[in-house]
Write a protein that binds this DNA or RNA. Structure first.
Length: 451
DNA sequence: TCTGGGGTCCTAGGACCC
DNA sequence: TCTGGGGTCCTAGGACCC
């Protein structure tokens, strides 16, 4: 039986999705002007998460610093990401794809593979793909590219050809004409480093890679990578479309500082924050972690990391944080400036710890109670964020600068110890800090936007 | 220009056991 | 005292993806 795989890829996903929302709310279409999704544009370390076609035509690229993009295009429209909305777009997109074949593998928030081998009947693959593409466009308001091939690799390569709103095929017999002239970097799994090594050896195109002996290649990139690259360059891939839900194997969180930090106190505060986030997420997903890792990134982007096994798997923030602190102490000298820190957990299990250890931390019950309260606050903040913005009774405070806002917010948090609080981006793009009481927003603190 | 925040997998060396 | 060879686990680092 002939295998037919589709790879469906949303064009400029985050930007398209934000545009759909704005158009629905009566706004203009971001896709028609130079625009990007990014973090806080006043933070020099923010980068472009997604760019519109007009922005890309001006040379703005994904992952470029926002400050640089603004220099290229001073009139650039910047919108902040809306993750809850993106998730709902992704779910509706996946649901339409699944109607064409149940053999679906979600590859990321905006991409999936469909095994169409048993679901085409007498229809032509291109006709079905075109219908799928058009249906997503008319029902959901955004465009996708569909790549068609005999396996996942070629389908994915095909979807990357001309964009947007296109269907392309890459059958095995088309590989020499359509894929071999491309540079090695265009091949899946060839990144910056591998490209450098290959080019230094005179391997410039995917065709060069397809023809070289794997023995020579192995000396450059290792045996396994060599076999993988050689097979890929020849269009060979027999990996199945995996329909099963893959459980996460690790969780991590990182923070990049607005300015490099140089004191253990600052580092510890960041470690505390990321430990709370990671531990909360594993509890939410009913995991316990057997291994804790930390990493730090220096000014020059070099990274160092430490990891260690816990005596027993845990989901307790304090135990994870303690281990992270111990690891930090063995790794960082306490003075070399750091731009980023991160904490991860792995060796995840679902086991429940019924057995009690003689060496149990005497504060364990206190730690657990603290975690429960943290989890409740997070849940309350999530619920509040999911509700519509209308709450006319909330007191609204405006501040001319971020510093003043921060001071006032700290004061408000001290005064309202029973309140939950969350930072939130309002539908009009206003970045604000909200205090909740009994599920209602009672105060909203906003930094006045400079015109 | 000056670079985010998540993830996955692989490799190589050392410790330890038989 | 010095010695082989294989297996497994752990750790650090690197490369890639979106």
């Amino acid at each position: 039986m002939k295998r037919v795989i589709f790879h469906i890829d949303v064009n400029s996903a985050f930007l398209s999705w934000s545009a759909v929302k704005q158009v629905r709310e009566g706004g203009s279409d971001l896709r028609l002007v130079p625009s990007v999704v990014s973090g806080d544009p006043s933070d020099r370390r923010s980068i472009v998460t997604a760019a519109s076609m007009p922005a890309k035509k001006l040379g703005i690229k994904t992952a470029q610093p926002i400050s640089m993009a603004l220099r290229t295009c001073p009139g650039l429209v910047i919108v902040r990401g809306d993750w809850a909305w993106y998730k709902s777009c992704s779910e509706r997109f996946t649901a339409i794809c699944r109607a064409y074949s149940p053999v679906l593998q979600k590859f990321s928030i905006d991409e999936c593979f469909l095994d169409m081998s048993l679901h085409l009947g007498r229809q032509e693959p291109v006709a079905v793909a075109t219908e799928l593409k058009n249906r997503i466009r008319s029902e959901l308001g955004f465009t996708v590219n569909v790549g068609i091939g005999p396996n996942k690799l070629l389908a994915k390569m095909a979807s990357d050809f001309e964009k947007p709103d296109k269907v392309h095929t890459l059958w095995t017999e088309e590989v020499p004409a359509k894929m071999w002239p491309l540079g090695v970097r265009d091949l899946l799994w060839v990144g910056k480093r591998t490209e450098e090594r290959l080019v230094a050896y005179g391997i410039n195109t995917i065709g060069d890679l397809a023809r070289i002996q794997t023995g020579a290649l192995a000396r450059l990139v290792g045996i396994r990578a060599a076999q993988q690259l050689h097979a890929s360059a020849n269009g060979v891939d027999d990996s199945p479309v995996e329909t099963d839900f893959q459980e996460a194997k690790s969780y991590s969180a990182e923070r990049t500082f607005a300015q490099d930090i140089t004191t253990p106190k600052e580092l510890d505060r960041a470690m505390f924050n990321v430990a709370c986030i990671v531990a909360h997420r594993i509890r939410r997903d009913r995991f316990k972690a057997g291994c804790v890792s930390i990493f730090i990134k220096y000014r020059d982007f070099s990274v160092a990391q430490r990891q260690s096994q816990l005596p027993r798997p845990t989901d307790v923030t304090a135990l994870i944080l303690n281990e992270a602190r111990r690891l930090v102490a063995t790794l960082w000298d306490g003075v070399t400036p750091l731009r980023q820190v991160g904490l991860g957990v792995s060796k995840l299990t679902h086991e429940t710890d019924l057995q009690l250890s003689l060496f149990e931390d005497p504060n364990l019950e206190y730690y657990r109670q603290w975690d429960r309260e943290y989890d409740e606050r997070m849940a309350a903040a999530r619920d509040a964020a999911a509700r519509p913005a209308a709450d006319p009774d909330a007191l609204v405070f405006h501040y001319p600068t971020g510093e003043e806002a921060l001071a006032a917010i700290k004061q408000a948090v001290r005064e309202h110890r029973n309140c939950t609080f969350a930072r939130r981006i309002l539908p009009d793009g206003t970045d604000c800090f909200e205090l909740f009481e009994g599920g209602k927003v009672i105060e909203r603190h906003i930094v006045k936007k400079t015109p």
